[in-house]
Design a protein around this nucleic acid. Structure first.
Length: 273
DNA sequence: GTCCAGGCATGCA
DNA sequence: TGCATGCATGGA
């Protein structure tokens, strides 16, 4: 991987296995918007970003500082992980081989714990389009505007000042009470997300499961997308259908990277089942 | 109009 | 421990 500063852009070459459509619009993050030119715009880590690929396949981080790239986006896009090698391992499984050949380039984004956990509480019993709708409303109403019309994901402290009715007004439905309590508990320190991130997987899982409105599925999504536990394996209604293809359990080649395998299977299921 | 979505808490056996 | 039920809402 080579990182160059060209004008006000950061240009990264030599990154394999990163398809912007598959990675930014596959249901792991809800805040990226595809633009007419094929690039994606969004807010992450408190930064507004427009990202695209040029004709050479280089990643263009438009109008981005070296500081924000080094301290945030490099990790957010998981650029130091060898996904090509991971895919080669996963392709020992027959279904994954076909799936990766068809949809190569899914990465796991390292989202911030609070945004990931809160987003996946909202995601339950909901479809991706409507999850995006609700989260956009939440950010527009209570986030900070960091570019014209682009807002940060609101902090737990900010949301802790709200009541259940405020969340219901955004369309959260019966999840409003979950987010209300979650925001207050994170803001007060009763739930310490950084501590959870530092725990071993099973202990982190146990802590998350105790949170009101957080069950097994939301826990695994949070662990995988917000706490960098690559072996977390979320099973939703789509993945339940996929699991019929693995009656004897998950294959050995998934070990330690179950979450990455899951993201390919999830995408395959939504397109084929 | 009905059905469904990156599910969960609750009550009951 | 496992199963049935209710839950908000917008798109198909």
């Amino acid at each position: 991987m080579e990182v160059k500063i060209i004008g006000s852009d950061i240009v990264v070459s030599g990154v394999e296995c990163l398809d912007l459509d598959l990675t930014l619009d596959c249901g792991q993050a809800f805040r990226w918007v595809k633009q007419g030119d094929g690039s994606y715009s969004g807010v992450a880590g408190g930064y507004f970003l427009n990202i695209s690929k040029n004709e050479n396949g280089d990643l263009i981080f438009e109008n981005t500082t070296k500081e924000s790239f080094d301290t945030f986006f490099r990790n957010y896009f998981d650029l130091d992980k060898d996904y090509k090698k991971i895919c080669d391992t996963l392709k020992e499984d027959e279904l994954l081989r076909a799936t990766i050949d068809e949809y190569y380039g899914i990465r796991i984004l390292n989202q911030e714990p609070w945004e990931a956990l809160c987003s996946f509480v909202i995601s339950q019993q909901n479809n991706i389009k409507r999850i995006k709708l609700i989260i956009t409303r939440l950010c527009s109403a209570y986030g900070d505007e960091v570019a014209d019309g682009w807002y940060t994901f609101p902090s737990a402290q900010k949301l802790a000042a709200l009541g259940e009715q405020d969340f219901a007004a955004l369309g959260l439905g019966y999840r409003a009470k979950y987010v209300e309590k979650l925001a207050k508990d994170v803001a007060s320190g009763a739930i310490d997300l950084e501590k959870i991130k530092s725990l071993p997987l099973e202990e982190a899982r146990k802590e998350l499961l105790q949170i009101y409105g957080v069950g097994i599925k939301v826990t695994n999504c949070a662990l995988l997308f917000g706490f960098q536990f690559y072996s977390a394996f979320p099973v939703d209604v789509w993945m339940k259908r996929v699991m019929e293809y693995y009656p004897d359990g998950l294959p050995k080649c998934f070990d330690g990277i179950e979450g990455i395998a899951q993201q390919y299977l999830f995408h395959w299921a939504r397109n084929n089942l």
